[in-house]
Design a protein around this nucleic acid. Structure first.
Lengths: 322, 322
DNA sequence: CTGAAAGCGCTTACAG
DNA sequence: CTGAAAGCGCTTACAG
């Protein structure tokens, strides 16, 4: 039989309400009884029963992390990494992480709904949101605390989000390439990724000008390089597959064309040439998203946080002189 | 205010104990009152409060999934996939999934310990176990139900596990290559992955014979191909980086050397040549692991399950004739 | 087949 | 600073 708060109280010779208070710091307890209680807890190896706490306090100390519908993207390494960071941060704050995964937005929503109705979690983190997003809309409707990671998409009311500044990221990429002497460029878009792809493209085009940039869908294999000297790809993985495609046409990177990509993933320094890529600071993204959620649970605050990025220069972009 | 079981009872004109029983199927309830209760549940939108259920029933309906210490491998796509499968299966059985991640075995153990002591979960799934494994040992010591995915490593008593037959996998790879005419081979091992790497190697060597196989550490870049015509690599990702390394020495796959790898990952059909690789049936692995855990929670049964594998033939292995 | 009661292990006003 | 009591929302013997 696990030891209960009553055992501790008896052992320390106080009432269980005193034990409860001593264990929560914020109440005034005499130094001596606190000592005795702490000792009792130690000697008995007491750990509070979660269910009882939840029931009595109406707080769960658990958050739900909602993955994107797996078909498109859930197994990119990004999601595993961010999950790890979120869990670390949550654990440090004494909250556990429950997850929701599914093949469709509908499935996800029904999981989220159940988790909410059963009061399994205090709030949710959406690891991504589509333009139309059942989960987001449900949560907003029900006034459940949540925060979306990345571009929040369509929203009826303001909501919590933690994001990179994708517009700025695009603009920065453009400026970097121009500084290295590039004039004509290709920008590969990926329709699946919606919003954040569009934002980066917008930032990029605003700097280089539409006339200097060919916009190509990543899955369009009919693309032919003309006078472009650089290309921007939304993700290291895609960059790798494009580099491979080009190699088969005897177009080499970076000699014939430079490649600038995003995410600084594991793979980006494993392949040849090592990729020049933007690091999107997953660590900070994860910490912020947990912090924002917790504050929102506490006091219904709404925040929009932008996390900075930085460029990792490696070998896939060359400087054009003259 | 959420609706409670009392509301439902009042609405249906019965006692709440009757409602509780009606909702759990296995009790005998007259058809008519069951109807009325179900209707009340629908109209009121009742969903049971989890904490109250847990406290009263002493069951949690939640399982913990423990990731490997992230440093080495947690962000391989395999883990994301298996998590998805586990979650799907668990959800179908009305149980939620909580996770534990960490940078070290010690960190992981302390998370697991807390989850257990607070009774947040009924049992655990270890996504991997090392030869020496603090988490496994703790769980075993405390008699907490758990199952390990993959080779269970050192164990003081029998424990639940769900695994591929790694020995058989190695032997199968050897037979396949021999059938395709290969005689001299290289087997790349990866010390990080310990046990399952060793098992596959053992199966492989037992078939081809030690004299016909050069065993090379994956991180040993001094490897020089001599008369070998085929190599076996533990994982698609590693295969890709080796193929790249060889290409720089103008050794091409599969013309100059064949490559056989494992996991049938996302990447394996994206690159050139498309990889011939073993599919390890993640779907089934995930379902089994949940089933075994639940049975173990129910009735303390111990099981050891082996999940079959199959080969996906693509372009990286060629047949040697003559 | 159903009701009344006790109990799961906590928290938190209320009093002093 | 501390105790006694009520209550959180369920489940489950016990009785009938």
């Amino acid at each position: 039989m696990p030891v209960t708060i009553d055992d501790v109280a008896k052992y320390a010779g106080v009432n269980k309400s005193t034990v409860s208070r001593a264990l929560h710091g914020s109440y005034s307890i005499s130094e001596s009884t606190r000592k005795r209680i702490e000792q009792a807890v130690d000697e008995l190896g007491y750990v509070g029963n979660l269910a009882a706490k939840m029931l009595a306090s109406r707080r769960v100390n658990s958050i739900g992390v909602v993955f994107p519908p797996i078909a498109d993207k859930a197994n990119q390494p990004f999601f595993m990494k961010i999950l790890t960071v979120i869990n670390a941060k949550a654990t440090a704050n004494n909250v556990t992480v429950a997850i929701a995964t599914g093949h469709s937005s509908r499935e996800l929503k029904s999981q989220v709904r159940l988790m909410h109705l059963e009061r399994r979690v205090d709030g949710f983190i959406l690891l991504s949101a589509d333009e139309e997003d059942l989960v987001r809309d449900y949560l907003q409707e029900e006034k459940v605390p949540f925060v979306v990671l990345g571009t929040p998409g369509k929203q009826s009311q303001p909501l919590n989000s933690v994001d990179n500044d994708n517009y700025q990221l695009g603009a920065d990429a453009a400026n970097y390439l121009i500084r290295r002497g590039h004039k004509k460029m290709v920008f590969f878009v990926d329709e699946i990724r919606g919003e954040f792809s569009r934002e980066r493209l917008r930032g990029f085009l605003d700097v280089v000008g539409e006339d200097n940039c060919q916009v190509v869908n990543i899955f369009d294999t009919t693309f032919v390089k003309t006078d472009e000297t650089a290309m921007v790809v939304l993700d290291d993985w895609l960059a790798i597959s494009i580099i491979e495609r080009l190699r088969q046409q005897s177009i080499h990177v970076p000699q014939d064309i430079s490649v600038l990509s995003f995410n600084n993933s594991y793979l980006s320094k494993l392949i040849e040439p090592k990729l020049t890529t933007y690091s999107i600071n997953i660590e900070q993204l994860g910490e912020e998203v947990v912090r924002v959620l917790q504050e929102s649970i506490e006091n219904e605050k709404i925040e929009r946080v932008i996390v900075p990025f930085h460029l990792i220069e490696r070998d896939s972009v060359r400087t054009i002189t003259g």
